[in-house]
Structure formats: C-alpha cells, structure tokens
Design a binder for these strands. Structure first.
Lengths: 342, 342
DNA sequence: GAATCGATTGGAACCGCTTCCAATCGCTCC
DNA sequence: GGAGCGATTGGAAGCGGTTCCAATCGATTC
C-alpha cells in the first residue's frame, strides 16, 4: 500500500530501471515479456510515478497555463470565461495534461515573466487575445514557448488562434432585427480596444449598410460586458434616444442588464423595444422575456485551444492555424415578430 | 538572460549551494554579508528556482487541490462555485501556493486516489461537503493528507470546515415573507442528500413554526440549483398549488428560473407572488424584478478554506475548526411590501 | 594561550525519474 | 563457426534542488 518508486518496480519485475521507464513512456525496445511483467507489478503495487521527478528529469511538465490579465472577479463571474475554461479543462484532462489557471494583474507582468519564462514550469500557454501585449507575445515567441490565442489580435498572426466569427454573428443578429422591420437599431458593444468588439460592431454596421438602413453613429454605445453596464447604458440611452426600437447587445450579460433597465422604465420587450444578445449563456433561456441571441460554441473554443496547444507542444502541429468557429442565431422571444417597428 | 541554476548562483556569490538554499528558504545560519551577496546575484540574474527540483527534494509541492465530483459543466456554470474558487485562488496566490482544480466523476474515484494519494502530488485538498464519501474522507484521514471541507457533512466533524449558516439564512428569508403577511409560502430547495439543503429547509420550517404558521408539506418542492429546475418546478406548482403567494427559493439561479415561469404564466412579481432567493449572485440585482435574497460571503468562504488548509499544511493550525459565516438579508423588489398576501 | 561553544559554511548524499551509451543477446548469413 | 546486425537491456550520469553532518571560524572564558 505504500508508495513505491521506480527502483522497486524494477526489482519486483526483474528488470532494470531503464526498462520500467521505457514502458512508462511507451518507448520502443522493450520485449513483450518484460513489458508484461512491469505492467503487472505496476498494477499490483498501484505504482504511480512521481511527477516532480519526472518533470525534473524530462525537462517538461505536462502542464499548460491559461492566462488572464483581467480582474479575476470579472473573469470568473461572467459565465462566459468559465465555460471557456471548462472546455480547456476537459480536453486537457482527456490528454492527461494539467492546466494551471493564472490571473496576473498588469503590474504583475514582470512577476509573470519570471514565473513562466525562467522557472519554465509550463509547457505552453493559452492566452486571451485581449491581454496580448507586444511585450508578452514577443517574449513567448522568442523563448519559443508554445502559445495559442483565444480570439484575434491584430498583428499576432504568428500565433495560432481559435475564435468565433464575431462579424458573422452580429451581422446575423442585426439582420434579424432588420427583417423584423426595425430601422432604428442601437448597438451596445464592448471596449473597442478588443478586436472582438470591433468585429461585432463591424458586423452591425455592415448589416445596416447591406440593408440600406442609414447608420446613426449616435446609436452606438460602448461599455463593458456586464449586467451593470448593459443596465446603466440602457437607462441613459432611453432618455437620449427614445426613437430606438431595437438593440443589439454584444453579450447576454449586457442584454440582461438592458432588459432590467427597460422593465424598470416601463417599456415592454419585445412590444416596445426588441433586444438581441450574444453568446447564448445558459441563463438566456430564462430572462424575461427569453433572449434571442447568437449562440457561440464557447466550451468548444476552449477545447480547440487546448488541443492546438498540446499538438504544438508535442510537435504534432507546427504550422500556424487560425480557426474560426461559426455562431448561430437562436430565436426566442425578446425580438418578437413584428413589433412597434416602423 | 538565460535560466541559471542554484550552482551558478552559488558560484557568482562566492558561497556554497547550501547557503543559497538557506537564503532561498529563509533558514537561519546565514551571515548578513552572505545573504546580501546571494540576494544580489539572484536579482541580477533573475534567478528563479526550479519548482520540480524543489518539490522532489523537499517532498512537498506547495500545491493544493480543490476537488469536485460534480459535473464540471454544472460546477462552472453556476456562478456560485466560480466565486468560491475565486476566493480560494486569491488566498493561495497571496500565500504563494498554487491550486489545482480537479473534477472527478464518481467512476474516477479510484483514479483519483491513485493520483492524490500515491503520486502524492498535492499538499492538501479542499473538498465540498457534498462529495465527501466515507471512502474518500477516510482515505484522506488515514493518509494524513490535510483536508478542509466547504460546507458541512454529518459525521465528518473530524475535518475542519467552513460554511455559511444556512439555517439562519433561510430562517430570515422566510421570516421576511411572513412579516410581509404571507401565510402560504412555498419552498424550493435542493437535494436533501446535502446537509446544506436540509439546513435551508429546516430554517424554513422553523421560521413558519416560530410564527405560528401551519406547515404544509405539500408546499415543499425539491429540485436542483439551476434555472431550469426553478422554472420547471414553478410551472408545475402553479398548477397544483395556486394558493401559494410566496416562494422561498434556496438559490438565486432557481429563483431566476422561477421568475421566468411566473412571468410566462402571466403572474406579476411581487404583486401576485413574492419570491426570495439565496446567495446574492451578481445577477440578482438585474432580474425582473430585482431579487430579494440572502447574501452569503461566497468568495470569503473560499478564502477561509484556503487559509485553513494552508495553516494546516504548515502546521500552524492543528485543531479542528468549524467556521460558520453569517448571511444577510438583502431586500430588493421581488417581495414587495404588502402584496396580495392574505 | 588553550579550551569551549555557537554561529556559519561547505560537502555530499539523496529525492525519483529520463536518457545516453555501451554491453549483451539471439539470429541470420556467408 | 564466426562475423554482422538489430533488438533489448542495464549502468550511470545527470536534472536542480534540500538537508544532514562535519569542519571551520571567531569570540569568549578561564
């Protein structure tokens, strides 16, 4: 029952340490009888190799980091990231990698470099496009530490990435609103520092343009991906632009806040104002009214990211790849059919 | 710029490896000059010790596991657990421990034991009361692996725990409803296999009893802590027990589902039916109407758990401790003032 | 000035595994 | 029968730390 080490396994199986190590690592040059004996001993004594020793000798850790520079509180509580992490976790578990979740504040950048780059305790890093600074990505690249981006970042085409087609998503959301007859459509999007938000805004613009609906820049509101932001923005817009009959919200959380503000203001959704969200988080079905939104395969995104980085670490994949997942429009009730629109 | 190891530090500082190690670990018996020299070299070359080597030699990993046997999807998407994890993360980060998040399905129990108990790669484990099986806890105990429970589990008083006073929380929620004049109060609680859910139900019962309101067992509905469950239960109860004028929901997610079902059924909250939740998750402020709920310091719970296990690992704390955090009633609008109640 | 003692210091063993390299083994082939 | 060769195997040298132990040092005490 006590922990045994590789030497004991070797002894009990009447082979040398080297042989045990080879079967442990699936290396060739082990006879069938030897392998069999070793495997039996391992099973019998419930042997598990010491991972610290393994890492030390092999100079790798089978551990990947998932790195975020945002406020952990925001990250963890937004439902979106957690699903993403989940995808990463599951894939890594399946491939027997472990994942280390890291939050680093911007002041800690230096600390991080020490940790990741010098202690070199991570085989690879998954990062979010938003946190990719020249500095960080540059370091990663020159140190040849495998990295994969979730999202897009201009100028980092040299790092593989997974993303959802944000442009297509918002395009179809807004087109849906237009088809329902809306002309005065507001957009509530995230920080334009993020490529993602830019793309979602661009999709909105293009959808209007393609439909020949004049674009009113004043209808665009920029905020954060939170209920609070959606709520507060809506409240102030309601006063300034009462003519808006439909809102494209760049996230479900924003949309939820917006719904709350609309209700508070005595407006009915979708009769008075239509709202469409983005993400299709699990709660979207239970907002009042249930939210029409753009579904994106969030945890799949994480899964792909994990798979890509592992392939990269193992050398299975060396080319740069940019994967773009397709989002879907999910129609529920927050846009109605043909509401007050024009 | 290249990684250097302890030997090089020693050489550059004109001391031996042992001395370097001592300053690294804050051991005594290092002269001030030696320490100074070592520190300078460390700074200059940006030295960071190799954690695998450290773990191997020191036989500990400075890593704690946080273990959940539930479906990862549920865990990660329920907002509650993520806040909990956040508390754990933050505290561990502060104390320079790292945390390994683990999801193990019940069939993987054995696998887990191998991993944790034999590879012995974790210095301690935080677990949720719900997953504490005799087996698991027993193993942990006999192996003397420090463990801390989040929540309570009957029969495991030998493991330290952190919890919120669930009884007090539901008691005050239900008392609030009674004060508003409600007599027919429904309860929507989680699985009675969980101590937590039992306590929340017990608080409900006691509140009714203390107020002299007769208890109707048929008003109690048992489900899961999800929007879907809250929604579905509410829908069916509405048909069977239309006389209920107020609901105590044992979680905000449930309450959100319940609100959605009420709205769908054409009932107004709080005018027709009052609803109170539990947890005060960040979205509770933005439901329609904003949710009156019981606030519990979730991430603080995680933080304490982390602190307790670290103290345990370091030997600073050896006594068993059961910490009970106090919840608060947060009044918003879902209960109104004096509604249709009696 | 020698003995004593505590504070420093350096040396070396060891933690458990990977991996290079040389040795061995069992065949085939001439 | 011996050379040649590929498949196995075992030995040993690390990987980069921690820690025990003995040696050294400097100051104090008699």
């Amino acid at each position: 029952m006590n922990k045994i080490n590789i030497d004991q396994v070797a002894r009990y199986a009447f082979v040398s340490r080297s042989v045990v190590s080879r079967v442990l690592n699936n290396h060739p040059h082990v006879s069938d009888v030897a392998r069999e004996r070793v495997l039996n001993v391992i099973k019998k004594y419930n042997y598990q190799r010491n991972s610290a020793a393994r890492s030390l000798a092999a100079k790798n850790t089978r551990e990947i980091g998932i790195l975020s520079t945002r406020n952990p509180n925001d990250v963890m509580s937004n439902g979106f990231s957690t699903l993403l992490y989940l995808g990463v976790f599951e894939e890594c578990l399946a491939q027997r990698y472990s994942v280390r979740q890291m939050f680093i504040s911007t002041e800690m950048k230096e600390e991080f470099q020490k940790f990741i780059l010098n202690e070199h305790t991570l085989d690879g890093v998954i990062l979010f496009a938003e946190e990719v600074t020249d500095l960080l990505a540059g370091e990663l690249l020159t140190r040849e530490i495998p990295a994969v981006l979730i999202g897009h970042a201009p100028g980092f085409s040299s790092i593989s990435s997974v993303d959802v087609d944000n442009f297509a998503g918002s395009y179809s959301a807004v087109t849906h609103l237009i088809r329902l007859g809306h002309r005065n459509i507001g957009a509530m999007v995230g920080s334009q520092l993020l490529q993602e938000s830019q793309d979602r805004l661009a999709g909105y613009r293009k959808a209007l343009e393609d439909a020949g609906v004049p674009l009113n820049e004043a209808f665009v509101s920029i905020g954060g991906y939170t209920q609070k932001s959606g709520h507060d923005k809506m409240l102030s817009r309601l006063r300034r632009q009462p003519e808006i009959t439909a809102w494209f919200c760049a996230s479900d959380t924003m949309a939820m806040g917006a719904l709350s503000a609309l209700c508070k203001s005595g407006l009915r959704v979708p009769d008075d104002v239509a709202v469409v969200g983005f993400d299709d988080l699990s709660f979207a079905r239970y907002t009042i009214p249930p939210l029409t939104t753009i579904r994106q395969p969030i945890s799949q995104k994480g899964q792909y990211a994990a798979r890509m980085i592992i392939d990269r670490i193992s050398g299975k994949q060396t080319d740069i790849e940019h994967r773009n997942l397709k989002p879907d429009l999910v129609i529920r009730e927050s846009c109605g059919h043909r509401s007050r629109a024009r």
